[in-house]
Design a protein around this nucleic acid. Sequence first.
DNA 1: TCTATGATCCCCT
DNA 2: GGGGATCATAGAT
Length: 200
Amino acid sequence: MKKLPLSFYLRADVEQIAKELLGKVLVTNWGGAFTSGRIVETEAYAGEIDNASHASRGRTPRTEVIFGTGGTAYVYLCYGIHQMFNIVTNISGIPHAILIRGVEPMEGTGIMLQRTGKKKVDETLSRGPGNVGKAFGFHTSQCGFSLVGEELYIADDGFTIKPSMIGTSPRIGVDYAGDHADWHFRYFLKGNKYVSGKIR
DNA sequence: TCTATGATCCCCT
DNA sequence: GGGGATCATAGAT
């Protein structure tokens, strides 16, 4: 498996990066607890002009990492329960981020079951951003972590997808964002059962 | 200090 | 298909 280089994350086109992340392998290795899975669903958040992004409300201590340089993790606690894992992209000063919404488990499923408290591996294990965060052991304390380190990275294992396998839709849970709620910034692998929401 | 709220999920009817 | 869980953050007092 080839680890994606820092340059992958520093490009300007978030939509393109969000699309290319489909089929790649997400790896976390916190203290030797190795887990990996294939990314099947992503959402792009295009910075200050995007009303759906946290960054649109300005630069704060929490959103600081999104404004930082690409290739780092932004982990956010939602509804007091769910740890959401985001990938920061673009160069410093431009707040682009990609939310990982769905992952198909590969290695370390035993560890994931332990973390989620589930009995068996099924599609609920890592479908939806909240579950991905839980299964892969993400925590808000990991905000700002590098994506090219040993504990956290994204790899290419040679798996390729055809453009016809990629579906797009408006993003989920951001209806409040006015016109931007209609942007097709959500990307997923068609038919994959680890894709959340109704449109697969 | 205090309070509202959210890029969600799960269990209950 | 509806509501409760549960807490860091941000903006108001």
